[in-house]
């Protein structure tokens, strides 16, 4: 597949001196859905804003469809649509007017039937003559989406498209996104939610502290994220793990008081019952048992320290 968006060693230092992007490189394939996953303040919005020309870059380069976003910005930007994180719309404007404005702004010829199609797809057609302020938050977010789609972009950025959107609407949104993908639109969306990335993306990029920590096929990443840990606390510490338990690849911690077993929640059998049986068969006495799921945050930490190692 062809690369449609290429980011090379992108750096951004804000006027405050804060470096929000520390050399980001990323290639996005034509027609894929990439989820940009990261905690608050990771630099997701900064990355998108820089690519879209809202924020100036400090160094690096970005090309869209082979066009540099600085030297060839007209062609590059025509290809890009953006749904910003915050809802920013003129409250007194009518839906139809704002969407038509967006299309004109991007230099596209007037095409009312195309705009009608978009508004229908986003269930906004019956609201076309309403003022923005008369719409609910979820509808307003869809208006932003309609604006972004009004000029037929090839690459669409969705900065937290489902923030503050109810479950029902979230599904609708995903449906629209999938429809766009079917039309060959490349989609980059940011999210805090693993489930969201899981539901619609092809690949996942994890960003934290202004650095891309990994870009991975969704399926592979989900396998990794699906891991859970069982901590078995013993009444007496042990020096070494008994041979009978060697199959479980246990780790020891807490001065030998605790055995940690890592397992995949998606596997048919987690092996917990067998492990507990084997532990008592080995003559060890249990004091307490805990399980914990690795949170997204921990996975980030794990990724960062993994990189350092």
């Amino acid at each position: 597949m062809a690369t449609i968006l290429s980011v090379r060693d992108l750096r951004k230092t804000y006027a405050s001196g804060f470096e929000a992007l520390k050399g980001v490189s990323l290639d996005i394939e034509q027609g894929e859905i990439l989820a940009l996953l990261g905690p608050n303040g990771a630099g997701k919005t900064t990355l998108i804003s820089t690519i879209c020309g809202i924020t100036g870059m400090s160094s690096g380069s970005v090309t869209v469809g082979g066009h540099d976003i600085l030297s060839d910005f007209r062609v590059a930007r025509e290809m890009i649509g953006l749904v910003p994180q915050e809802i920013t719309l003129e409250p007194f404007e009518r839906v139809w007017n704002t969407v038509r404005f967006s299309r004109g702004l991007f230099g596209k010829k007037r095409d009312d039937s195309y705009l009608e199609e978009i508004l229908r797809k986003l269930s906004l057609w019956d609201k076309k003559d309403s003022a923005i302020k008369e719409l609910s938050g979820g509808m307003q977010r869809r208006v932003l989406m309609a604006k972004a789609l009004s000029h037929e972009p090839r690459v669409l950025f969705l900065d937290e498209p489902t923030a503050g959107v109810d479950v029902e609407l979230r599904k609708d949104m995903w449906e629209v996104v999938n429809g766009l993908k079917a039309d060959g639109v490349t989609i980059i969306l940011t999210t805090h939610y693993i489930e969201e990335a899981e539901a619609i993306s092809d690949r996942v990029a994890v960003i934290s502290g202004g650095e891309i920590l990994l870009v991975e096929d969704k399926a592979d990443l989900m396998r990794r994220m699906g891991q859970k840990q069982l901590a078995v606390q013993l009444t007496e510490p042990i020096d070494a793990i008994p041979d009978a338990l060697s199959d479980y690849q246990l780790e020891q911690s807490g001065d030998g008081h605790v055995l940690i077993y890592t397992y995949d929640t998606r596997a048919d059998r987690t092996g917990i019952t067998r492990l507990l049986n084997d532990i008592s068969a080995a003559g060890l006495v249990l004091q307490d048992v805990q399980t914990r799921e690795s949170s997204l945050e921990e996975i980030f930490v794990g990724l960062v320290s993994g990189e350092a190692a």
């Binding site: 003129e90 702004l105 991007f106």
Partner: peptide, 17 residues
């Protein structure tokens, strides 16, 4: 000033103009 104030200015900055 109004687009800057309410935030719709992003669209002008991101447009091919």
């Amino acid at each position: 000033y109004f687009p800057k104030f309410i935030g719709t200015f992003y669209e002008l900055l991101s447009a091919p103009i």
